[in-house]
Write a protein that binds this DNA or RNA. Structure first.
Lengths: 218, 218
DNA sequence: ATTATCTATAGATCTATAGATAATGC
DNA sequence: ATTATCTATAGATCTATAGATAATGC
């Protein structure tokens, strides 16, 4: 039979993208053939070309669909309302929200795909906005928190690295390199511990010396 | 001509591995053909098969040659001699030494290759020992520093994440995702700032509260 | 007429091997 | 005899296209 009846019609475009994300995240772009995508969807290769002009177009459609990410929303928070108990509940909320979105199967596959293909993308901004998510944006958040007296003023870009670095490391350990379903219980416990440690390290009222920062190696 | 004269004999095996590392790091394993490796070396494909039984064997030889890494040496330091001025000079030395080895072109290419192929390797320990370098080993170092009173006793695995997370993030930002020669001057300044911040956060004598660490999300 | 599939296949490219050839080292 | 290359090619696989076929929506 050629075209399927309305009854058995499926959203083939969506199925192609789902299968491609799965396969690209496992085998990489070059390691995944159109043949294999077609087999996973259950159609012939030529049917893929009805929906996308090329294999690269499938990859680009995935970037379009999944690229922007959800971390933007987090920075548009009502700081006044959330800073009542100090910065820790706010930062814990942000950290957990990020991990919640990172822990979805779709996002896990997407970041695996990006890790494999990212350095080869000619859109270098993509990796920065995905892996090193919102570093500048976070710097601005810390600047704002500093202005409100919620954290000690200092090198806000350093704060962004101190906050996001361990987050990135835990993301890699628990959500990218680990196999099987992530242990979210253990993960959130570690995330909370990190947020607490970070907040203590930027607490108001402790005069952190900065003289050794500008030293060079001897 | 068939076999080259002694005069023009080259260490072809080494040239193959060099070319393969370069190409795998740029295009991934599946995205690099034996044809392209042969062309880069300047021999025919069949010459490659004289040195390696398959393309996979070339990849595995690279893992063998470059896998172990040099971070082991760092943990076998004479702590007594180095702790005279407190933990910061020691940790700064460790951090800079790690970045010095990570900044070599060979290591940069290797980690790009691993990032692309790592999740597909059936040796899962490799990624952990490379990307998440020596986390357990570092935990033990902090334990030892805590025992000697150089840092505040606490969750030493958390300390390892707090120390290595920002290191990993800076490695990604400056040495993996950045294009062109790395700005080592700026990098080391950031590394020093991180080490300082970390040391302040684990300084002896500050009672860091830990009650919120074990909270769960509400 | 348009849309979504199919069958069939062109043409490129890829991995790997067979067998020839010439330099080397005994 | 061994080693390191070459030429030539088998056979698999890959991307993409041409053209047939049947369901859909006007």
């Amino acid at each position: 039979m050629a075209r399927p009846t309305k009854e058995e019609a499926r959203d083939t475009r969506r199925l192609i993208l789902d299968a491609a994300l799965e396969l690209f995240s496992e085998g990489g772009f070059a390691g995944t053939s159109m043949r294999r995508i077609a087999r996973a969807v259950g159609v012939r290769e030529s049917a893929l070309y009805h929906h996308f002009p090329s294999k690269a177009a499938i990859f680009e459609a995935l970037l379009q669909d999944l690229g922007p990410g959800q971390s933007e929303r987090l920075m548009a928070l009502d700081l006044d309302a959330l800073l009542g108990e100090g910065p820790e509940p706010l930062l814990r909320f942000i950290a957990r929200s990020l991990f919640e979105s990172w822990a979805t199967p779709r996002e896990q596959k997407f970041v695996r795909m990006l890790m494999a293909e990212g350095p080869r993308l000619n859109d270098p901004g993509l990796m920065h906005s995905s892996i090193v998510a919102g570093r500048a944006r976070l710097g601005r958040l810390f600047e704002e928190l500093g202005r409100r007296g919620a954290i000690r003023p200092g090198d806000f870009e350093l704060y962004a690295i101190e906050f996001m670095g361990p987050m990135l490391m835990m993301r890699l350990m628990f959500l990218v390199l680990a196999q099987g379903a992530p242990d979210l219980e253990a993960l959130f416990a570690r995330v909370d511990a990190h947020v607490h440690h970070f907040c203590e390290s930027v607490k108001v009222g402790e005069a952190m010396t900065t003289k050794s920062v500008s030293r060079r190696r001897g």
